[in-house]
Design a protein around this nucleic acid. Structure first.
Length: 382
RNA sequence: GGACUCAUAGUGUAGCCUGGUUUAACACGCCUCCCUGUCACGGAGGAGAUCAGGGGUUCAAAUCCCCUUGGGUCCG
């Protein structure tokens, strides 16, 4: 099967659309949530669990797999799919996010959105620079977070690694800038990311992988628009929207509104790293097709379970004797078989099964939400 | 019967010798919050102790002295 994207239905009330993305390893019904398997594993789940959840696609990370076990090992295993025995569609991130998460993200102690520091707090970062990451025009030098060893990523190297890993969808190597980066830095970084985008296209050899470009530009309107135009003009098979999405979620919606007029209508759009339930719904309405996020899985492991009303912290004392299921009416394996009291016990006892049951629930919740959003688009609802 | 030794939040300990910097610290536990292209089953707050009880010395005692109670070790 070849790569292809068909839009089946567009909403009349918003920019939402439902489509089918074909990959050599199967189809993805969009809008879709891509479960995150950074190290070639959805933490605590087996591929069988994913199938039962109805997950269609997963995302692994180039940087992590390059460091361990090494992309040569994965290649020798027959590629990511065979290595981890997940036969459905896969995506790899380029390592570009680690330029941020191991770099300025660490210095600023910040994620890609949220948290608005005061002036004094910004002051304290002056003169500081990332320790694990060194960025030049040619590429990025990483100090491995595992053993401190030095590694140099260029756009060409990222593509080579991603070709060795063999995912169906791969991403251009970019720099995700910090929400605290100023205009000048963001502009300079964007030029570099654009140059890298061209180099990625040129470096790509495999025909059975789809390469997505990535729009950057922080929360600066002119930069975002420039980037949207530039990336959209190139022969990428899809568009990633990355980087700092502003200091609040409202800001993120504003950025998506800026971008929309410049996005090619027929290419899939992947909003990188977003995923809490509210954001998924709101960003589909703003024209996004694909999402990947650690939100449901990470929260699950740390004791937060997703419910319609918001969240449930299973570590709270009131769940010790609560013999109800996480959410009445939920059809996930966990809710079909276990109570809050049992999950509370597993969580407190640090039993490994807790991670699996909680991850199953949160992923089911998220995937089910996406299914409902899609159905509504097909029915012409939102 | 005698000698020695120990007693600090729920648990385990630090502080005691060389009294004031102790509004008594730490770990685990407990209570709550946070987490958006995962370095991280992580991060941030919070509650909780008449320092076994009583007396004494001193400007000042968890800290030095005495007695009582309770536990432990050894000797008869």
């Amino acid at each position: 099967m070849k790569f292809g994207f068909k839009i089946i239905k567009k909403s009349k009330k918003s920019f939402a659309r439902a489509g089918i993305l074909e990959t050599p390893h199967g189809v993805i019904h969009t809008p879709a949530f891509v479960s995150v398997a950074t190290q070639a594993s959805i933490k605590s789940l087996a591929p069988e669990d994913l199938e039962n959840l109805g997950a269609e696609v997963i995302l692994s990370n180039t940087y992590h797999l390059y460091l361990r076990p090494g992309s040569a090992i994965v290649k020798k295993a027959g590629g990511l799919h065979k290595f981890m025995n997940w036969l459905g569609p896969t995506v790899t991130d380029s390592g570009g996010f680690q330029v941020f998460s191991l770099g300025w993200g660490q210095v600023h102690k910040i994620g890609k959105i949220g948290f608005f520091p005061g002036f004094e707090e910004i002051e304290q970062y002056k003169g500081k620079s990332p320790k694990l990451v060194k960025i030049t025009e040619n590429g990025v030098e990483f100090s491995s977070h595992l053993d401190g060893s030095k590694h140099f990523f260029t756009p060409e190297k990222s593509i080579k690694i991603q070709e060795d890993l063999g995912a169906d969808i791969i991403f251009a190597f970019d720099e995700c800038t910090s929400p605290l980066a100023g205009y000048d830095y963001t502009k300079k970084s964007l030029r570099r990311t654009h140059a890298w985008a061209l180099r990625c296209l040129k470096a790509k050899k495999r025909k059975d992988q789809a390469l997505f470009g990535i729009i950057q530009g922080g929360d600066y309107k002119d930069l975002r628009e420039d980037s949207a135009k530039f990336i959209s003009s190139l022969p990428f098979e899809g568009i990633g929207i990355g980087g700092s999405l502003g200091k609040t979620r409202k800001n993120m919606f504003k950025i998506l509104k800026w971008l929309h007029p410049f996005l090619p209508g027929q290419k899939p759009r992947h909003l990188l790293g977003i995923g809490n339930p509210d954001d998924l719904e709101n960003c589909v309405k703003r024209g996004m097709d694909l999402f990947d996020c650690v939100w449901p899985t990470r929260l699950a492991r740390r004791g937060t379970l997703l419910i319609k009303k918001g969240r449930l912290n299973i570590g709270n004392a009131r769940y010790i004797k609560d013999f109800r299921v996480i959410e009445a009416g939920c059809f996930c394996y966990t809710c079909q078989n276990f109570t809050r009291a049992y999950l509370s016990h597993l969580f407190r006892a640090k039993e490994l099964l807790y991670h699996r049951l909680a991850t199953i629930h949160n992923l089911y919740f998220t995937l089910n939400l996406m299914r409902k959003i899609r159905e509504n688009i097909l029915k012409g609802k939102p």
